[in-house]
Amino acid sequence: MPRNRQIWLVSRPQGEANVDNFRLVESETPPLAEGQVLVRHHYLSLDPYMRGRMNEGKSYAEPQPLNQVMIGGTVGQVVESRHPRYVPGDWVVGMGGWQEYSVVDGNAAGLLRKVDVSRIPPSHYLGAVGMPGVTAWYGLVKIIEPRAGQTITVSAAAGAVGSAVGVLAKQRGCRVVGIAGGPDKCAYVRDELGFDDCIDYRQYPDLRALASALKAACPNGIDGHFENVGGTVLDAVMLRANAFSRVALCGMIAGYDGQPLPMLNPALILISRMRIEGFIVSEHMEVWPQALAELSELVGSGRFRPRETVAHGIESAPEAFLGLLKGRNFGKQLVKLVD
Rank of each mutant, 00 (worst) to 15 (best):
L261P: 03
A128W: 04
G255C: 08
M274L: 14
G178P: 05
Q68H: 14
G96T: 09
Q333K: 06
S155A: 12
V299W: 04
A128I: 05
A164I: 07
F330V: 04
E100T: 15
D20N: 15
V75T: 05
V287P: 02
D47G: 11
F330W: 07
S272N: 15
V176D: 05
R12I: 13
Y86E: 01
V310Y: 06
Q290L: 10
S81A: 15
M274P: 00
Y60T: 06
L239H: 14
L268W: 03
M54E: 08
R275I: 12
V129Q: 06
L268T: 01
Q333C: 08
L324E: 12
M70I: 13
Q77A: 07
A164G: 06
A209E: 14
M54D: 10
R328L: 14
R40F: 05
Q64A: 12
A211W: 01
Q333L: 12
V167Q: 04
M252S: 13
G127P: 12
P289V: 02
I276F: 00
Y138L: 13
T29G: 04
V117I: 15
T232G: 02
K185D: 04
M54K: 05
R5Y: 04
L268H: 03
V335M: 08
G159Q: 05
T309M: 09
C250L: 05
H284S: 07
S11V: 02
V281Q: 10
M274I: 11
W137C: 02
I7A: 05
P132T: 11
L292C: 04
W8R: 02
L210F: 01
M252Y: 09
S301R: 09
L249T: 00
D235F: 10
V310D: 04
E26Q: 15
Q259T: 14
G72I: 06
L261W: 01
D235G: 09
A33T: 08
A213F: 11
N329W: 01
W98L: 09
A109T: 15
A158N: 09
I314K: 05
V176T: 07
L24C: 12
G255E: 04
G52F: 07
R273W: 01
P122K: 08
P219W: 13
L268I: 08
R305A: 14
N242M: 11
S59P: 04
R240K: 08
V281M: 12
G194Q: 10
P205L: 11
I271M: 13
D105G: 11
L46M: 08
P262G: 10
A17Y: 02
C218V: 03
S301T: 10
Q99T: 02
V93S: 10
D206W: 07
G106I: 09
A267K: 12
R51K: 15
D257Y: 11
A209D: 14
A213D: 11
Q333P: 07
R190S: 03
N67Y: 14
E294N: 12
V161N: 03
Q150P: 05
G327T: 06
F321Y: 13
S272K: 15
G224N: 01
A61G: 12
I276N: 00
L32H: 07
V10M: 12
P30E: 14
